[in-house]
Design a protein around this nucleic acid. Structure first.
Lengths: 240, 240
DNA sequence: CGCCCTTTTGACCCTTTTCAAGTAACGTGG
DNA sequence: CCACGTTACTTGAAAAGGGTCAAAAGGGCG
């Protein structure tokens, strides 16, 4: 065996608490290692799966950053989410055994391939895994409710503020800064996610900079006032 | 036993093919009857569950029509979906053991109460049920992708056209007309779902009427040209 | 070093919202 | 069954928020 191929199992993965259930016995953790069949590396710009492809597996992101997007025949396109380490993608494929969106890596990435039939088999035996799978799917449904609220009832500034707060909060949960982040996506991709044109995203960033709420240098963003962003999302008066 | 209380089980429910898996053995169908604990009637305007309430069960709609909506503290409100007979609601509650949206009956309704712990227990034994639960959740995720596309990239006419086509298609699958429908919700609720103000919904209906695409009398809608609606959704030229 | 992609900014236009007024339908109670 | 109050719906006019088009500047990668 190649000495460089370190056996990386869920049982000793530092992301386990993000993508796997807690409070398992050692025996159960051993079994859950069986869920991950292989790993797969995807280069920046590469696709993990595409609309129409056969669904076989869910993917847990080990490193890197993805976007998922849906498209229509007439060329409309919508980013449905941005996913980072510890998050699971591919749930859309379960219902029809085909993926209905594209998953594209926004930076070099590595995922754990978890064949879905194996997940189903094992979750019949390990109750904690069964519950975990249900919670992951439910969490995605609730997340999308939030996006619908954003798209349906917020103005441009509110959308961008909510977006930044959400990103930085998820990054912070992974040990990164609460106030600084590097965007992995273009203004156009942000706009597609937020239901705005890229020019509007750019202008809104500029407005935030003018108002002293954030500093922006390219894709590097430093949040100067989290509270101001929260006030914008909550549609409150600035009470400097 | 009350002679008026007819035992209504999944095994002889004509909606079974909508809310339960197909191709079961008789023995499996018997077991699945155990999933439904009770039934519950909700009057028009009543709530099936509310944001913050403890999650215990999923609900299969037997009769009636529901809306689900999320809200923020600052009074923002978003209808996340309209549900009809044979559809399952409550999936949002799984992740945190609390509901995160309200489910409100838009007409007198009856639901089958399916305690979730019982569903999980039984789906460990009946593979078809397990698979079915996964597909229902995945279907909801895919549906919401479609709503995100609508909210993020369509104009008012396109949204309303897509909405009408979706409604009539689901009603047709339940044996109703392909071209006539009765809206169970107000213009305001349609607007909330579509990310539009009620005035815009009203104006867009009026425009469709002017163009001879639909007839509207209050909540009664007759679709005169399904093709025209499809062309609007697909952003195509009218080719009279 | 140079090309290309991304981003910014301006000016103008279009869609939708806002505000307002009036009308129609519905349900409730007498 | 009718009158009344309430809610839902329609329509107009003005305003605002984003979109579109265009041009130019800034970075990054080969």
């Amino acid at each position: 065996m190649n000495p460089h191929t370190i056996k990386v199992a869920c049982s000793n993965c530092n992301l386990r608490e993000l993508c796997m259930p807690l409070g398992l016995t050692d025996a159960q953790i051993q079994r859950i290692d069986e869920v991950v069949a292989t790993r797969r590396k995807i280069k920046r710009g590469g696709t993990l799966f595409r609309n129409g492809e056969a669904f076989t597996s869910l993917y847990a992101i080990r490193t890197g950053f993805f976007k998922t997007c849906v498209a229509t025949e007439d060329g409309r396109d919508q980013v449905t989410g941005f996913q980072m380490a510890g998050e699971v993608i591919g749930l859309d494929g379960i219902v029809n055994d085909r993926h209905t969106c594209d998953a594209i890596a926004l930076e070099d990435a590595e995922v754990c391939v978890m064949p879905f039939d194996r997940i189903e088999e094992l979750s019949r035996e390990v109750t904690a895994l069964q519950s975990h799978v249900h919670k992951i799917m439910s969490r995605e449904i609730v997340r999308e409710h939030g996006v619908m609220l954003l798209l349906g009832s917020m103005r441009a500034e509110e959308r961008l503020a909510a977006f930044l707060l959400n990103l930085v909060q998820r990054l912070h949960a992974r040990g990164f800064s609460q106030s600084e982040l590097v965007l992995r996506m273009t203004r156009e991709e942000i706009g597609s996610y937020l239901g705005l044109k890229l020019e509007t995203v750019s202008r809104t960033f500029s407005k935030f900079v003018e108002d002293g709420i954030v500093e922006v240098r390219q894709r590097h963003v430093r949040i100067l006032s989290t509270d101001a962003l929260k006030r914008i999302v909550n549609n409150q008066q600035a009470c400097h």
